[in-house]
Amino acid sequence: MPVTGAVMSQLLPAALVLFSGGQDSTTCLAWALSRYERVETVGFDYGQRHRIELECRETVRSGLAALNTDWGARLGADHMLDATVLKSLGETAMTHEVSIEMTEAGLPSTFVPGRNLLFLTLAGALASRRGIAVLVGGMCETDYSGYPDCRADTMAAQAETLRLGLDVPMQIETPLMYIDKAETWALADTLGGQGLVDLIAEDTHTCYLGERGARHEWGYGCGTCPACELRAKGWESWKNAS
């Protein structure tokens, strides 16, 4: 289970955060900056429809560094990797103009088969070259769409695969795995206060359709896609409980 709240008394050496520019990965980045001496980030261009999230990444990184001088000192290099092979494997609502709906396989059309597996493989290879033994990702099986590559069992298996295949120690941390979206907002507030909450609302991107025209209390988005609905519901539940 993730440890939420106060900074660890002794910082751990280093971590590589899978950082998309969205709410979850930004919260995970703040979590890592509170725990590790050196934190690097990696993003993936996989031909996503909402690729505007990639344009948000540097703004968010800079914002996090400005929020906390210690975080700024610990924030290391950013890496961007080409994962567009995923788009070439077949259509999904995340990579093509396809309706967001449940498929015959019982999974939403937003599921990109192999996405997290590929991301973690690439991140693991990068981490091994950077002398980093910890990957941090925003995978969650509490508030999610049933994606099999977001489950804790998948993360445990992937970590073991990386350890065996790379012949180096490799750990995958998932701070959000067992909390819902309201608790994710609460975690951001615990980690960075109102400044971090405001940064997430204003500068991160979650909307599957890449919409940034309408500004809601919880941030920008179409307001109707599953990602927007989940983010909005979590915001409302968190604010009502505050």
Results as ranks from 00 to 15, higher is better:
residue 135 L to K: 00
residue 202 E to I: 04
residue 146 G to K: 12
residue 223 G to R: 01
residue 169 P to H: 10
residue 138 G to M: 03
residue 160 E to H: 02
residue 213 G to R: 11
residue 165 G to V: 02
residue 190 T to H: 11
residue 168 V to H: 04
residue 146 G to A: 13
residue 217 E to T: 12
residue 144 Y to N: 15
residue 173 E to H: 10
residue 145 S to V: 06
residue 185 W to D: 03
residue 143 D to G: 09
residue 232 A to I: 01
residue 177 M to R: 09
residue 180 D to A: 04
residue 161 T to L: 08
residue 160 E to Q: 10
residue 198 D to N: 08
residue 234 G to E: 05
residue 188 A to C: 12
residue 164 L to G: 04
residue 230 L to R: 15
residue 164 L to M: 13
residue 142 T to S: 12
residue 215 R to L: 15
residue 206 T to G: 05
residue 142 T to N: 06
residue 170 M to F: 11
residue 181 K to F: 03
residue 134 V to S: 09
residue 201 A to I: 06
residue 198 D to R: 04
residue 155 M to H: 03
residue 162 L to E: 04
residue 198 D to Q: 06
residue 196 L to P: 02
residue 189 D to E: 15
residue 226 P to E: 12
residue 162 L to G: 03
residue 169 P to D: 11
residue 200 I to Y: 08
residue 201 A to C: 15
residue 232 A to K: 09
residue 192 G to Q: 01
residue 173 E to F: 08
residue 169 P to N: 11
residue 212 R to G: 06
residue 164 L to W: 11
residue 142 T to A: 14
residue 202 E to G: 02
residue 226 P to N: 14
residue 192 G to H: 01
residue 225 C to T: 11
residue 191 L to F: 07
residue 138 G to E: 02
residue 174 T to V: 08
residue 139 M to R: 01
residue 217 E to M: 11
residue 162 L to V: 03
residue 179 I to G: 06
residue 216 H to Y: 15
residue 203 D to Q: 14
residue 168 V to R: 11
residue 226 P to D: 13
residue 149 D to K: 08
residue 185 W to Q: 05
residue 178 Y to H: 15
residue 206 T to F: 05
residue 192 G to R: 01
residue 205 H to F: 07
residue 199 L to E: 06
residue 144 Y to L: 11
residue 148 P to R: 08
residue 133 A to T: 15
residue 198 D to C: 00
residue 204 T to I: 03
residue 207 C to E: 05
residue 202 E to T: 10
residue 222 C to M: 12
residue 208 Y to H: 13
residue 148 P to L: 03
residue 145 S to Y: 13
residue 154 T to K: 14
residue 140 C to M: 13
residue 151 R to F: 03
residue 142 T to F: 03
residue 152 A to V: 13
residue 213 G to W: 03
residue 199 L to G: 06
residue 195 G to D: 04
residue 233 K to D: 12
residue 209 L to Y: 13
residue 189 D to K: 14
residue 133 A to P: 13
residue 188 A to T: 07
residue 221 G to H: 01
residue 200 I to C: 10
residue 211 E to A: 14
residue 207 C to K: 06
residue 182 A to L: 09
residue 234 G to V: 08
residue 160 E to C: 03
residue 223 G to A: 00
residue 144 Y to G: 12
residue 193 G to S: 04
residue 200 I to P: 05
residue 150 C to I: 07
residue 139 M to A: 13
residue 198 D to V: 00
residue 172 I to S: 02
residue 208 Y to F: 14
residue 173 E to I: 09
residue 157 A to R: 10
residue 161 T to G: 10
residue 187 L to S: 07
residue 173 E to Y: 07
residue 206 T to D: 10
residue 150 C to F: 09
residue 183 E to K: 14
residue 205 H to W: 04
residue 201 A to G: 09
residue 140 C to D: 12
residue 158 Q to R: 11
residue 134 V to Q: 09
residue 147 Y to W: 12
residue 213 G to F: 05
residue 217 E to D: 15
residue 166 L to K: 05
residue 218 W to S: 06
residue 204 T to D: 02
residue 194 Q to L: 04
residue 225 C to A: 13
residue 180 D to L: 03
residue 195 G to A: 09
residue 141 E to K: 13
